[in-house]
Deep mutational scan, measured.
Amino acid sequence: TTTLTYTDEEEARKAAEELKRRGITFTYTKRGGTWEIRIK
Rank of each mutant, 00 (worst) to 15 (best):
T1H: 12
T1K: 08
T1W: 15
T1R: 10
T2S: 09
T2Y: 12
T2A: 10
T2V: 14
T2G: 06
T2P: 06
T3E: 03
T3Q: 04
T3S: 05
T3N: 04
T3D: 03
L4D: 02
L4I: 10
L4T: 04
L4R: 05
L4G: 02
L4S: 03
T5M: 10
T5H: 09
T5N: 05
T5E: 05
Y6Q: 00
Y6F: 15
Y6M: 02
T7G: 07
T7F: 12
T7A: 08
T7M: 09
T7P: 04
T7E: 09
D8M: 05
D8G: 04
D8C: 08
E9P: 06
E9C: 07
E9I: 04
E9L: 05
E9A: 07
E10D: 12
E10G: 13
E11G: 05
E11I: 05
E11P: 03
A12S: 05
A12P: 00
A12L: 04
A12D: 00
R13N: 09
R13F: 08
R13A: 06
K14T: 08
K14Y: 06
K14S: 10
K14V: 07
K14D: 05
A15Q: 07
A16I: 15
A16Q: 04
E17S: 09
E17W: 10
E17I: 11
E18V: 08
E18S: 10
E18F: 10
L19E: 00
L19A: 01
L19N: 01
L19T: 01
K20P: 00
K20A: 12
K20I: 12
K20D: 07
R21D: 06
R21C: 10
R21L: 09
R22E: 06
R22Q: 11
R22L: 14
G23H: 04
G23E: 03
I24M: 05
I24L: 08
I24E: 03
T25P: 13
T25F: 12
T25D: 15
T25G: 07
F26V: 02
F26Q: 00
F26W: 01
F26P: 01
F26A: 02
T27S: 09
T27A: 04
Y28Q: 06
Y28R: 02
Y28I: 15
Y28V: 15
Y28P: 02
Y28S: 05
T29S: 09
K30G: 04
K30D: 11
K30A: 09
K30T: 06
K30V: 09
K30F: 12
R31D: 09
R31I: 15
G32M: 05
G32F: 05
G32K: 08
G32Y: 04
G33R: 05
G33H: 10
G33T: 11
G33C: 11
G33M: 10
G33Y: 07
G33W: 05
G33S: 12
T34L: 15
T34Q: 13
T34V: 15
T34N: 11
T34F: 15
T34S: 11
I37R: 00
I37T: 00
I37D: 00
I37S: 00
I37C: 00
R38N: 10
R38W: 07
R38I: 15
R38G: 05
R38K: 14
I39K: 01
I39L: 07
I39Q: 02
I39Y: 10
K40E: 14
K40R: 11
K40P: 14
K40S: 14
